[in-house]
């Protein structure tokens, strides 16, 4: 058993704001999958927003501070050395804060100044490692471990794995990626493909894995977002996918919302289902669809899962 394998069995858990709102089902399914796999999540105490995609446009260093506070609590108040964030936005921002605090003196100064005034210990780069929910399951359990635990094989369900932007870009904030065999690729990510394949899915060849859903402007420039989402939905269908698997609450709700908007506004109807990868892993592990929050999704997948004999 590798060192990582043990280290990821109990991690600090940073759900973030979206997982308490529109991404509720992602929160529920992540926790349930963790439980089913015997992995322990210790929620970061009294956490705050990481700054999402918006605060950096006011000032990037405020985002660095916001993310650093979360890392500081996990490291200094809870004694963890790993923080797991399932939301791509949170994951990206914690990684970016780590990078900035390691490389940029000015960021350090600002974070130290605000941390002091806020009355908590300043986070120092290197105190914790930030990982995504995909890293967590992939390294703590792995494909083989997952295969052993699968109760309801996904039985060749055709899945397009959609990773979005913030899991791989910009590349420099993810130094552990692109390190050869076994590591994640920023150009053609595959961790979600690997896990779902182990659960019995048939991954389709999907060219828009890291395309943008327009999440940053989902409300401020809805027409652009609808066009971008429609591209993704149509490409998934053209690739033969029955389901798009997601790993980010912003992408997920963006796909759901603009699937409806595309139909209402442009008369473009698509039927591909949209599910969090944790929901798919959950039903494969024998949890029922409600336990992993399928009923909390905007798009309806209950019937589909029933037809597949998965719930």
């Amino acid at each position: 058993m590798s060192e990582k394998n043990e280290k990821y069995k109990k991690v600090a858990y940073y759900p973030g704001c979206a997982l308490e709102g529109t991404g509720h089902a992602y929160n529920r399914s992540t926790k349930q999958v963790g439980k089913a796999l015997g992995l322990e999540l210790d929620e970061v105490k009294n956490w705050n927003c990481c700054g999402a995609m918006e605060v950096k446009n006011i000032d990037p260093k405020i985002q660095t501070y916001l993310s650093s506070r979360v890392l500081s609590i996990a490291a200094n108040e809870m004694g963890h050395d790993v923080v797991m964030a399932p939301c791509n936005g949170c994951y990206h921002n914690l990684k970016k804060a780590e990078y900035d605090l390691e490389k940029d003196e000015k960021s350090k100064e600002v974070v130290e100044r605000i941390s002091k005034k806020a009355g908590h210990k300043t986070y120092e780069a290197g105190e914790v490692e930030t990982i995504h929910a995909l890293d967590w399951i992939k390294d703590a359990i792995g494909e083989e471990g997952l295969k052993e635990r699968v109760k309801n094989n996904l039985n060749g369900m055709k899945i397009a794995n959609y990773y979005g932007c913030m899991y791989t870009r910009p590349r420099h904030i993810f130094p552990e990626k692109d390190q050869g065999p076994g590591s994640e690729s920023t150009l053609e990510p595959h961790f979600m493909d690997d896990l779902l394949e182990a659960a019995g899915a048939e991954n389709v060849d999907f060219p828009l894995k890291t395309a943008c859903c327009g999440g940053a402007h989902t409300l401020s420039d809805s027409d652009t977002s609808t066009k971008l989402v429609l591209n993704i939905l149509k490409a998934a269908e053209a690739s033969g996918a029955e389901v798009i698997a997601t790993e980010c609450p912003t992408c997920h709700s963006g796909l759901e919302m603009h699937q409806i908007r595309a139909e209402k506004k442009y008369g473009e109807k698509t039927n591909v289902k949209i599910l969090y990868f944790t929901q798919l892993l959950g039903v494969a592990l024998g949890l029922n669809a409600k336990q992993v929050g399928v009923h909390e999704n905007v798009s309806h997948s209950m019937e589909f899962l029933k037809e597949k004999g998965l719930t």
């Binding site: 927003c49 999402a52 918006e54 446009n57 006011i58 405020i62 916001l66 402007h217 409300l219 401020s220």
Partner: peptide, 19 residues
């Protein structure tokens, strides 16, 4: 509209820490 959104968002974080 994007700047309005960023501002509404940032104001809420400054006020409550969360969105």
């Amino acid at each position: 509209p994007s700047m309005h959104f960023d501002e509404v968002f940032a104001e809420q974080i400054i006020e409550t820490g969360k969105i």
